[in-house]
Amino acid sequence: MKAREFLGIFKVEITVLIDIVAVSAFLSVPGSTLRLALLAPLLVSGSLASFSSALFNNIYDQDIDGRMKRTEYRTKLINWKTRNLYIAVATLMIALSMAISQIYLNTLTSLFIFGGFLSYFVLYTVILKRRTIWNIVIGGIAGSFPALAGWSSLTGSVSSTSLFLAFLVFLWTPSHFWSLASSRVEDYIQADVPMLPVVKGVKASTRWIFTNTVVLVAYTLIPFFVHMDLGRAYFPIAIASDVAFLYLTGRLLVSSDTPSLKRAFHFSNLYLLLILVSVWLVAVGW
């Protein structure tokens, strides 16, 4: 067993992104640098909940993971022999997550973290994934909860800034995941999962990817017209990132080959990272 495969079943890359979202909302709270110690319980509880939902996701999808090249390695680790062990580990993780957030943060933050867990495992994995092409659109709400948790961990409340960041991640998710699904369409066909490119075809999906990106880019411009304390670095970084993302997803309308789809997918990660990190700079007066 490779370390990369073991980390893969916990979907560490998703957890890192979730943590970055939470930190962005945390640092956007005025005076957050005076209470940086609260980042520790926020990140620990959020990461544990993310790891737990990833494990439950893999356990539930055990029957289809072996049919997809991207996920077949998971069946070496999570199978009928080890299933109960991983259920116990996942249950312990979400229990610890709730305990830590309740003890060191507050009830609202605990609810947001648990909401992220439920929306990914129950809403997306169990209810939507195998039933509708809108699975990742509706299920994308899971990525919104970390922004709400990051802000509420300091304030015990919700704000226009945290809601803006939460909906930003929600709008980003379809462009991101549809690019991946389109580049791996054969996997989803084999697994009989009705992702958009499976049902509508890759070419049609590229139109949806570009359209969603246009909506996303338009949304990122809202702080230009409605005051939000996102810092001065947000504006140039958002504009540069928007232009690059529009270009890459726009090119898919002309060439929807696998390399182009993978470029759009990988850049989507960088795109969100750049915008979120730009928000971090508000904490140091940028």
Rank of each mutant, 00 (worst) to 15 (best):
R184E: 15
D242P: 03
G231M: 11
F114K: 13
M195A: 12
I18S: 01
N106T: 14
S260W: 11
L154W: 15
V158Y: 14
G140V: 01
L180F: 10
P146A: 02
S241I: 06
M68N: 11
G8K: 13
N84Q: 07
A95I: 15
F56K: 14
I20R: 00
A142I: 06
P174N: 06
L270Q: 03
F10I: 07
G8H: 13
W151Q: 02
G250F: 02
V226G: 06
G285W: 06
L171F: 03
W151P: 04
W151T: 02
T206V: 15
K200F: 12
L118V: 14
A166N: 02
L276R: 00
T213D: 08
A40H: 08
D61A: 08
V254L: 13
K69T: 02
A49N: 03
K129F: 13
T15S: 06
I222L: 15
Y188E: 07
F167A: 02
Y104C: 08
P41I: 06
S50C: 12
V254F: 12
G46L: 12
F177H: 08
I189S: 12
V29F: 07
N212V: 05
F26T: 01
T213N: 06
V21E: 00
S45C: 12
Y86Q: 10
V214R: 02
L34E: 07
K69S: 03
N212M: 15
I239S: 04
I138C: 04
E5W: 09
L272S: 00
S278R: 01
F114V: 11
L230I: 09
L148T: 00
F51E: 08
R83I: 14
S159Q: 12
I209P: 04
A204S: 10
P194A: 06
A218D: 13
Q62M: 05
P223F: 14
A88T: 15
V169S: 01
L39A: 01
E186F: 03
Y60F: 13
W151R: 07
A37V: 14
L108F: 05
N269M: 07
L273M: 08
N57W: 13
I275Q: 00
N57I: 10
Y73G: 07
V202Y: 11
V193Q: 03
S24Y: 00
A166Y: 01
L92T: 12
V185G: 09
E186Q: 08
T206K: 09
T109L: 03
I20V: 01
S153I: 02
V12R: 09
V16M: 04
I64T: 10
G31V: 07
L108Y: 10
K2T: 14
A37W: 14
I275P: 00
E72P: 09
I113W: 08
I141V: 06
A149D: 01
N269P: 09
V215T: 05
A244L: 05
L165Q: 01
R207T: 10
G139Y: 07
H176E: 02
V44W: 10
S255R: 15
V202M: 13
T75R: 07
A95S: 09
L38A: 12
D61P: 04
M1H: 15
L148S: 00
S53R: 05
L272H: 00
N84V: 15
A40R: 13
V226T: 09
L272D: 01
L38F: 11
